[in-house]
Amino acid sequence: MGALQALPNTFTTSQANRAGLHFRDLYRLRDEGDLIELSRGVFRKADAPAPTWPDLLAVSVRAPLAVVCCVSAAEVHDLTDEIPREIQIAVPRGQRPPRIDYPPTEVFRFSSTTFDLGLTAVEAAPGENVRIYDAERTVVDLMRMRGRLGEPLALSALRRYLLRRGARPAQVVAFARELGVLGPVRAAVDAVIAE
């Protein structure tokens, strides 16, 4: 089917429709094993290379402006052994949050003035990137939300980050200053470095 070959490895129902595939075709191809449905309205070619982060890929296709954050980002950056129950994403305050049932998703609203601070990307599948906060921003966000997500998680992620090769504690402190949690982050950084 030529229309299917013209589509990227991961695509939406609307992209498929524009390429000439009808809904019936998509579901038939899914039922025949040629497509995998990652989320409602998000499909991946069955013969495409396996994604490293399929749930992150599905969520990013459904919400392309969102950014993977908090525990989900900590997992990607190997800052925690905790597996999040939900994919955690951030959207700017004032933007309508996406409603995604599968994979289960938790949406945080971050200030639009600092939303792009620490923004980077991770390859969720070969040639397919997902927006994510870098390790430094992730550590600071966990510290900012330690009351909600748990102080042990935040402190453990900070310790794990600071003890790795290439850690940039000055960048963590700079992000903490920008995000309004300089005091707790500086105290925690000093405690870990003094160990």
Rank of each mutant, 00 (worst) to 15 (best):
G41M: 04
G41I: 09
G41F: 07
G41C: 06
V42M: 11
V42Y: 10
V42Q: 09
F43L: 14
F43C: 14
F43A: 15
F43N: 10
F43T: 14
F43I: 15
R44C: 13
K45D: 11
K45P: 13
K45A: 14
K45F: 14
K45C: 15
K45N: 13
K45H: 13
K45G: 14
A46R: 14
A46M: 11
D47S: 15
D47M: 15
D47E: 15
D47N: 15
A48H: 14
A48D: 12
A48G: 12
A48P: 09
P49M: 12
P49C: 13
P49Y: 12
A50V: 15
A50M: 13
P51M: 12
P51H: 12
P51T: 07
P51Y: 07
T52C: 09
T52A: 11
T52S: 13
T52H: 09
T52R: 13
W53R: 05
W53D: 00
W53T: 03
W53F: 15
P54I: 09
P54N: 13
P54E: 07
D55F: 08
D55K: 11
D55I: 07
D55T: 09
L56E: 05
L56K: 01
L56H: 10
L56T: 06
L56A: 07
L56M: 08
L57W: 04
L57T: 06
L57K: 09
L57N: 06
L57V: 10
A58S: 10
A58E: 04
A58L: 09
A58M: 07
V59Y: 04
V59T: 06
V59L: 04
V59D: 02
S60I: 01
S60H: 11
S60T: 05
S60R: 06
S60C: 05
S60Q: 10
V61Y: 05
V61G: 07
R62D: 00
R62V: 06
R62Q: 11
R62P: 02
R62M: 10
R62A: 08
A63S: 08
P64R: 07
P64K: 03
P64V: 05
P64E: 05
P64D: 05
L65I: 04
L65Y: 12
L65D: 13
L65F: 06
L65N: 12
L65T: 09
A66Q: 03
A66W: 03
A66S: 09
A66N: 03
A66K: 02
A66M: 07
V67N: 01
V67S: 03
V67M: 08
V67R: 06
V68H: 01
V68T: 03
V68D: 00
V68R: 00
V68N: 00
C69M: 08
C69W: 03
C69F: 02
C70H: 15
C70A: 15
C70V: 15
V71F: 11
V71T: 15
V71W: 10
S72L: 04
A73R: 00
A74N: 04
A74I: 00
A74W: 02
A74Y: 02
A74T: 04
A74H: 03
A74K: 01
A74Q: 05
E75S: 05
E75Y: 00
V76R: 01
V76P: 00
V76G: 02
V76E: 00
V76D: 01
V76S: 01
H77C: 02
H77R: 04
H77I: 00
D78K: 14
D78L: 13
D78S: 11
D78P: 03
L79A: 07
L79R: 04
L79N: 01
L79W: 03
T80D: 10
T80G: 12
